[in-house]
Simulated assay, not measured.
Amino acid sequence: MITMDDIIRDGHPTLRKMAEEVVLPPSEEDKQILNSLLEYVINSQNSEIAEKYGLRPGIGLAAPQINVSKRMIAVHVNGDRDELISYALYNPKIISHSVEKAYLKSGEGCLSVDESIPGYVPRYARVTVKGFNADGKEVKIRLKGLPAICFQHEIDHLNGIMFYDHINKDNPFKPIEDAVEIDR
């Protein structure tokens, strides 16, 4: 089971590396890593388990955050209609996106970043992601709102990009033109 001690922090070189593609079919070790990423985000949202193991709540986690430089992510979040979006994917890619942008009104956070970094993070309002599930089967997911933002955040980790890289350095709360504000 992954704990907060396993999650590397901002400044660690692995967080700035381009992660490697996972060879499919996945090895037993890669399956175990992928499943443990999803297990962490699910457990971190359960207050009893989170308290018992000292887990910081999260809605997504990428393999580079546990010092594994491979293209694997897990997301466990409720969508706009309260539907559960729960995926663990190998080699996820954004294959299409909206022109329209979106951002979280409260800003973004990250399990690898201990301090709060204020500012708007411009993202695409809608994305289509293609990847491979734990069984190595191809999946294609259309996302909008918070789930779309979460997937973009985690895929950024696979490319060595941190959420705060997107924040306007001169004016962190500069309004993002034609963007949807998501209040979550």
Rank of each mutant, 00 (worst) to 15 (best):
N46S: 09
T128R: 10
I59S: 02
S112K: 10
E181F: 06
I94F: 00
D156T: 07
A74Q: 04
G107L: 14
K31M: 10
K169W: 08
L143S: 02
S86L: 11
F132C: 07
K52F: 11
K101G: 08
L34C: 02
T128W: 01
D156F: 01
L104C: 12
D10I: 15
T128S: 04
P147M: 01
G160Y: 02
I155L: 03
I2A: 06
L24M: 10
F163R: 07
K52V: 10
S112F: 05
S116A: 13
A74R: 02
G160R: 04
Y53S: 06
N91G: 07
L111C: 09
S98T: 03
P25Y: 11
A125M: 00
V41A: 01
R123G: 08
V180C: 07
G54A: 13
E115D: 13
V129F: 00
S112E: 05
A88Q: 11
D165E: 15
D183R: 10
D178T: 08
E28D: 14
V22P: 07
E108V: 14
V22H: 05
L24E: 08
C150D: 02
Q45G: 10
N43Y: 12
D10K: 14
Y120A: 14
I66S: 04
P175K: 14
K130A: 11
A148E: 04
R56C: 01
P122M: 08
L34R: 04
F132M: 09
M72C: 05
L15Y: 01
V139L: 11
N91C: 05
Y40H: 04
D170L: 11
A63E: 02
Y164R: 13
Y87I: 06
K52E: 15
M162C: 12
V41N: 02
Y40A: 01
H76V: 06
S27Y: 11
L38H: 04
R16S: 06
K93D: 13
P13C: 08
R123Y: 00
M18W: 00
I176T: 07
P122A: 03
K105G: 08
P25S: 07
I73S: 04
G79P: 00
C150T: 13
E20S: 10
P26N: 07
E181L: 10
M1A: 13
C150A: 15
V23P: 08
V68D: 05
E51I: 07
I176D: 07
D30I: 01
V41F: 05
I73V: 12
A74F: 05
A134L: 11
V139E: 15
A125V: 00
S69P: 09
D178C: 13
P172G: 10
K31V: 05
Y103A: 14
D165P: 10
I161E: 11
G131V: 02
A88W: 07
G109F: 06
S27V: 13
I49W: 12
S106T: 13
D183M: 12
I155D: 01
Y103G: 14
A102T: 04
G109K: 06
